[in-house]
Simulated assay, not measured.
Amino acid sequence: MIENRPGLKFLSHMSLLIAVLLVCFPIYLAFVASTQTAQDVVNVPLSLIPGDQFWENYSKALSGGEGTSISAARMLWVTIVMTLIIAIGKIAISLLSAFAIVYFRFPFRTLLFWIIFITLMLPVEVRIIPTFDVVANLKMLNSYAGLTIPLIASATATFLFRQFFFTVPDELLEAARIDGAGAMRFFKDILLPLSIPTVASLFVIQFIYGWNQYLWPLLMATKENMFPLAVGLRQMMGNGDVAVDWNIVMATVVLMLIPPMLVILLMQKWLVKGLIDSEK
């Protein structure tokens, strides 16, 4: 039982407030910088009051500068498409693989599951050279297929769906067999609706995973029109030879923060339910 002590309650609220300020203050600085002129951004100290260049800076960020095809609008589109393919692909493949492992009897199915699970120790960074060689030989550079297919397989999602399927009562499977339902009918009408909270929570996790990808897209995308936001931001910062419009860069940073924040806010209930709800 938690005691209701005023001092402890005040301390816990202050701790939460300090944590929120530490997390949100850099975001606020990025927003302030995105509303100022390029000269104001480099002034020391930086003003904490938003400027009057909001519409101008965000218009330039979305449309791109002269002589370059790097624009936030194009990078947002590439990133959203790449992220949705990765998230939906991971969930679809993991659902079907976990379904096969749990409900089908075939030789070495447990061994195959552990082989899948062991791939958690082999992230993209470890196998990046042979993976790049395969993708390059298949001529998938500068394509959505090259950006997404090597990242779609997910041992974590397969493991979570497998553990959830083990909690589904066997009586449901027997009832489906009595009613004459086949394997895919049982999967579509019974397992899939029961898995919605888990699917929703994994979608949020995989969406953030795909949104933050940098190393693999850096290798796959050699043309500016296929740059996702993480790679495009680095290109916008230049190499030190030319001046950087930090106000435009910060405007792009703010635009990059909006989609994942919306996904988390809109699906927060499902995220919590899928991760901690025991009555599935």
Rank of each mutant, 00 (worst) to 15 (best):
2 I>W: 11
4 N>K: 15
8 L>K: 15
14 M>C: 14
19 A>K: 08
28 Y>L: 12
28 Y>I: 09
29 L>I: 13
29 L>Y: 10
33 A>W: 01
35 T>C: 04
35 T>N: 03
37 T>R: 08
39 Q>C: 06
47 S>I: 05
49 I>E: 11
51 G>K: 01
53 Q>N: 11
54 F>K: 01
54 F>S: 03
55 W>V: 13
56 E>T: 15
58 Y>K: 01
62 L>K: 00
65 G>M: 06
68 T>A: 00
75 M>Q: 02
75 M>W: 00
77 W>Q: 12
77 W>L: 13
78 V>S: 00
82 M>F: 03
90 K>C: 10
91 I>T: 05
97 S>Y: 06
98 A>E: 01
100 A>S: 15
100 A>Q: 08
112 L>I: 15
114 W>H: 15
123 P>L: 04
125 E>V: 11
130 P>E: 08
134 V>W: 09
139 K>F: 14
143 S>Y: 02
144 Y>I: 03
146 G>L: 01
147 L>P: 00
159 F>Q: 06
161 F>A: 03
165 F>D: 05
167 T>K: 12
168 V>G: 04
174 E>T: 10
177 R>W: 08
179 D>I: 04
190 I>T: 11
191 L>A: 02
192 L>I: 11
192 L>W: 09
194 L>D: 04
196 I>S: 14
197 P>I: 04
201 S>N: 07
202 L>S: 02
203 F>Y: 07
206 Q>L: 11
212 N>D: 12
214 Y>Q: 04
216 W>K: 02
219 L>D: 01
221 A>F: 03
222 T>F: 10
223 K>Q: 15
225 N>V: 11
228 P>N: 13
231 V>N: 00
232 G>Y: 00
233 L>M: 14
234 R>F: 09
235 Q>M: 13
237 M>W: 03
240 G>F: 05
243 A>H: 10
243 A>S: 14
247 N>I: 06
250 M>F: 14
254 V>Y: 00
256 M>Q: 09
265 L>R: 11
267 M>E: 05
271 L>T: 09
271 L>W: 12
